[in-house]
Computed example of a mutant assay.
Amino acid sequence: MAKRSGLEDPAYAAFAWARYRRILGWMGVVAILFIAGAIGVLDRLYGPLGWVAILAVIGGAGGSIMLTAALMGLVFLSSGSGHDESIDDLE
């Protein structure tokens, strides 16, 4: 039988999910700063950018940063809440 994990406790679950949202919020700020910097550098190198190029930078760089942050945040959430230790290894 699997051990109980931390997310089954409502108080700890609220704390863990708040921490996850805080990580995503900070990574959103990092993504915005990186996107602004990337658009600035590209504008300086290539001249004024079209809206398609700006959307490509936002989608490519911002999407990659936020997807990575979301997945790594879930790894930290899983490990920190005891989900990883609650799995029975039958080997």
Rank of each mutant, 00 (worst) to 15 (best):
Y12P: 00
Y12S: 11
A13G: 04
A13Y: 07
A14I: 05
F15G: 02
W17D: 03
A18K: 08
R19P: 00
R19W: 10
Y20Q: 08
R21W: 12
R21N: 12
R22L: 15
R22F: 15
I23K: 03
L24W: 02
G25Q: 08
G25V: 07
G25T: 10
G25C: 07
W26D: 04
G28W: 08
V29D: 08
V29H: 05
V29E: 10
V30L: 15
A31G: 05
A31F: 01
A31Q: 02
A31N: 01
I32P: 00
L33R: 02
F34D: 12
F34I: 13
F34W: 12
I35K: 03
A36D: 05
A36V: 15
A36G: 09
G37W: 09
G37H: 03
A38F: 08
I39H: 05
I39W: 04
I39P: 00
G40I: 02
L42V: 00
D43R: 14
L45S: 09
Y46L: 14
G47W: 05
P48H: 11
L49S: 06
L49G: 03
L49R: 06
W51P: 01
W51A: 12
V52T: 13
V52P: 00
A53T: 13
I54S: 03
I54L: 08
L55R: 10
A56H: 08
A56Q: 12
V57C: 07
G59Y: 03
G59H: 01
G60D: 07
A61L: 15
G62T: 05
G63P: 01
G63W: 00
G63A: 04
S64G: 11
S64C: 08
S64M: 14
S64P: 00
S64Q: 06
I65T: 06
M66Y: 08
M66R: 12
M66G: 01
M66V: 06
L67Y: 11
L67G: 13
T68C: 08
A69Y: 01
A69M: 04
A69C: 07
A70D: 12
L71I: 14
M72R: 13
M72S: 07
G73M: 05
G73D: 01
G73R: 00
V75I: 14
F76Y: 14
L77K: 04
L77T: 04
S79Y: 14
G80L: 09
G80P: 01
S81P: 02
S81L: 06
G82P: 01
G82T: 02
G82Q: 06
H83K: 10
D84P: 00
S86R: 03
S86I: 00
S86Y: 01
I87H: 15
I87D: 07
I87Y: 13
I87M: 10
D89V: 11
